[in-house]
Design a protein around this nucleic acid. Sequence first.
DNA 1: CACCATTATTGATATAACCAATCAAAAAAG
DNA 2: CTTTTTTGATTGGTTATATCAATAATGGTG
Lengths: 287, 287
Amino acid sequence: MRAPTLDLTLLRTLVTIADTGSVTAAAKRLAYTQSTVSMQLQRLEAQLGMSLHEREGRRLRFTSEGERLLSHARRLLALNDEAWNDMQARQVTGDLTLGIPEDYASLLPSVFAYFHQLYPAVGLKVICGTSAHLVEQVKTADIDLALVTRQRNSPGGEVIRREPLIWAVGVNQQPSLSDPIPLALYSPGADVFREVAEQALLAAGREWRVAYTSQSMAGLAPIVTAGLAVVVVTRSMLTPSLRPLDESSGLPVLPMIELALHRAPHRPSEPARRLGELIREQLAAST
Amino acid sequence: MRAPTLDLTLLRTLVTIADTGSVTAAAKRLAYTQSTVSMQLQRLEAQLGMSLHEREGRRLRFTSEGERLLSHARRLLALNDEAWNDMQARQVTGDLTLGIPEDYASLLPSVFAYFHQLYPAVGLKVICGTSAHLVEQVKTADIDLALVTRQRNSPGGEVIRREPLIWAVGVNQQPSLSDPIPLALYSPGADVFREVAEQALLAAGREWRVAYTSQSMAGLAPIVTAGLAVVVVTRSMLTPSLRPLDESSGLPVLPMIELALHRAPHRPSEPARRLGELIREQLAAST
DNA sequence: CACCATTATTGATATAACCAATCAAAAAAG
DNA sequence: CTTTTTTGATTGGTTATATCAATAATGGTG
């Protein structure tokens, strides 16, 4: 009662014929001869003992059996590709260091988990630091990748994602929003946030004072949640203790910032390439 | 970025090696030479560019990659078999008549739907009749299959299922259960129900009277739901207007009855064979 | 150490997958 | 209507390779 095995190669040409609509085009795409593709189709029909296609004029049409087999074929090939990619991924080995600003850490754990599932043989290390510092480390190849807020003065890297900057205050606080506005500043993007905020306030004709500064959001959290200052964050950095402010607050709208992925110069290692791909996919996908 | 195609034949031998635990045994099962299987395994490893197995002593062990590929292989082969069977099933063609007692009709619509999905090219006709009559028709090859209550005097067929017989009354009724018990009788199994009921009552020393008779449950329904009589049914024949009685009613416990599938003599047609298989599977599965 | 079972290797063979070339048919162009 | 072009089917020949039979190697067993 064991079913014979289908030939995935033949199924591949079948779906290619369907996708391109002609034997000749399929042959070109698959780098076969036209006669080969023609015979492959015949072979498939012979093996199954039924005709899968018929021609009306020069146009090719699939029989209902052909259509049916097509859907089976697509599923089988999808599974084949998945299996193949998984097997190859397990061969990808090596070590790899990614640098991110501390405050982006919350953005990535699911990506790390997924990466480890796909590439269990890769040792992934993550270091935190300021964007400016990380960019330096990538340039000197101390680390392989760095995901940072794009710097005005170091415009390299590939833009992965754009995020709106927003004002935020302590969740139950109503801090004074009259001039001078008390700012709590920190440096996930090595003062990009600060520049952006100050320029926006300047353009709006507002005044401000830098009430507190810190190297990371963690240091500012008590000040902000206490309602003593306003802070600038991205939406993904919001915590339950932070309340975002919209335009009704009277504060100027802040521009987008750009997340950029920097890669070490001189062709990245295979693991680095893969992680870069994954970060791009995943961060582009999530809102 | 298109992944190469795996060879399902090689994957089949891989899982056979895993299932049997040895190359030689796999070769035997697959009707290959031992050397062929050995080389197939090597070929698979060469194509994937990794080693899938290692031997410790004489025992064969799969590497983690091997285990991984095994799970992929099983899924792929399952899909392959499903596809193959589906394609072949669509070629099964012909006409087919199944006979069932009217009161079993409720048991089978899902089976019919499934059958039509699997074998869309088969014209299925269903006729109803008494079990005795249907058995006759099968014998004379007037119909292909008959699913009937097994007759004491025509013990042929394959027993598909056993079901308890139970007493039932109108859902809101409390009919008199003192002797003589008023019976409503009908003949889904050509009086098998009647025989069984009367024997059980006799053995219990009870008395009864046949209050109503009919050819089908439908004819008795008004009488029974009005609370004028007790009826004997199987659990699958219960309708919302019927209330089953358990032992506390004082009525004797009834024996099981057997559903038997009779096939026309002299090798059944392919569609008949398939429907028979399906009925056996489905009715055995459902409680 | 000899013996048995299992696996790997080798050499020969035959199948069949592929290509190049040709033929057939139909649409498109003239 | 004829010619040209495009597309698919067919044929013959070549090559590659999957298989088998036979043999060698390996490791466990009496």
